[in-house]
Simulated assay, not measured.
Amino acid sequence: MKTLNEKTWQYEKHGIDGEVELFGVNIFDYKWEDTHTVTVLDPKYNNELHFNVYKVVIDGKEHEFAAGEVSNNVWCFYLPKE
């Protein structure tokens, strides 16, 4: 899968697998559609990470986020900067 960097991605939050709220819902309760890969900066160490960008549909509205598992069962989430 190719890397695209047309958007700026901003750190949003991190959390335990199955327990992260994004867009007002537990994001793990929804089907994630993998769209492409982006490079983001680690919020703590400022090193580059390569995360997949996903689309989810929540209550009929499409949302986009980048996410990656940074430690065993710990996920880091980024949202496009508006």
Rank of each mutant, 00 (worst) to 15 (best):
V74Y: 12
V20Q: 01
E48S: 11
W32H: 07
L79T: 00
V25Y: 00
I27V: 12
A67C: 08
N47V: 06
A67D: 04
V38D: 04
W9V: 05
L4T: 08
F23V: 05
V40Y: 00
E21K: 11
V53Q: 09
T3V: 15
T8H: 13
G18W: 06
L4N: 09
V20H: 01
Q10G: 04
E12I: 00
H36G: 08
F65S: 02
Y78E: 03
K81P: 05
V70C: 03
T37Q: 15
T8Q: 14
E6M: 10
I58R: 00
L41N: 12
L22S: 04
D17M: 03
H50R: 07
D34L: 15
V38E: 08
V20W: 01
E6P: 10
E69L: 06
N26T: 02
N72L: 03
N72I: 05
Y30G: 00
K2R: 14
E82D: 11
L41R: 15
G68Y: 02
I16T: 10
P80A: 06
Q10S: 11
W75F: 10
A66D: 01
D34M: 14
W32D: 04
K7H: 15
D29Y: 01
T8G: 13
Y78G: 08
L79K: 07
L49A: 07
P80I: 08
V74I: 13
D34C: 14
M1S: 13
G15I: 15
H14T: 12
T3E: 15
K44M: 07
I27W: 07
W9E: 10
A67L: 00
D42A: 06
D59I: 01
H50F: 09
D42E: 05
H14Y: 12
V38A: 12
Y78F: 15
N72D: 08
L79P: 02
Y78S: 04
K31Y: 14
D42M: 05
L22C: 07
E6S: 13
T37I: 14
H36M: 08
F23D: 10
I16D: 09
W32N: 08
E19M: 11
K61R: 10
I27M: 07
T35N: 11
F23W: 11
V70A: 06
V25D: 05
V25H: 02
G24L: 03
E69V: 03
F65K: 02
A67F: 01
E19F: 11
E6W: 13
E69M: 10
F77T: 10
T8E: 15
N5M: 13
Y30N: 01
D59G: 02
F65H: 03
D34A: 15
I27S: 00
K55I: 11
E62D: 11
H50Q: 10
V38G: 03
Y78T: 04
